[in-house]
Design a protein around this nucleic acid. Sequence first.
DNA 1: ATGACTGCGAGGCGCAGA
Length: 258
Amino acid sequence: MRIATYNINGVKARLPRLLEWLDETRPKVACLQEIKSQDEGFPIAEFEKIGYQGIWHGQKSFNGVAILADGTAPVETQRGLPGDPEDEQSRYLEAEVDGVRIACIYLPNGNPLPGPKFDYKLAWMERLRARMKHLWDLEIPCAVVGDYNVIPEDKDVWSPKAMASDALMQPESRDAYNRLLGDGWTDAIGTRNPRGGVWTYWDYQAGAWQRDHGFRIDHLLLTPELADRLTAVGVDKEYRGREKASDHTPVWVEITAA
DNA sequence: ATGACTGCGAGGCGCAGA
């Protein structure tokens, strides 16, 4: 069972590329971020044509997350991140698929800093931690996957110096991420690539892709019940080099049957 | 190096329909 996450940067602009990736790699579950679409504009029929069902949580222009599943309907368990009734940004969607609980997250970027956007990021991360504690206490196979907008360590970025002032690698951002790992969650890509040097994002600007100037910000965090079933991890790097690509690339874990 | 690129909405514009 393959669980993948992919920040697609616009579901309409990315549709041909996205359908191609689903068709070629056939993940059981595909968690999408930055669909940048309102609920009524989500092209579910296109996914159904190739055998996927899905749920989505959109908003106009920005953000938006979706969970697609091959040949089965994800059963929604949570829409929106709990903990702040004032927060109207669509960044969290959670469902059950084949006995696995899966949360799809689009964590706030947090730039520029200091400022309200960075404060929002840190507050969102504390709310995420509370939700993840809830999931942890269920003692079930569970994955919280998506665009975390955190570069965990210096080995996860092409140049720590170039990115030093960015919200993605501030000590506060890293501390909040490390608290999740400290709670027991397994960073699947990180633990399987201890030397680092694995990127999931390359900026559109300054020839970052051609120079391999990337970093790792798309993560899959697993409970022990799921980490025990982990057989492989991967980054579908070549999709970043295709025509009209997203600036992120798909990342996945392979899990054995229960 | 205050750069670089992209997607989307607003809005302009052309066009179809009333």
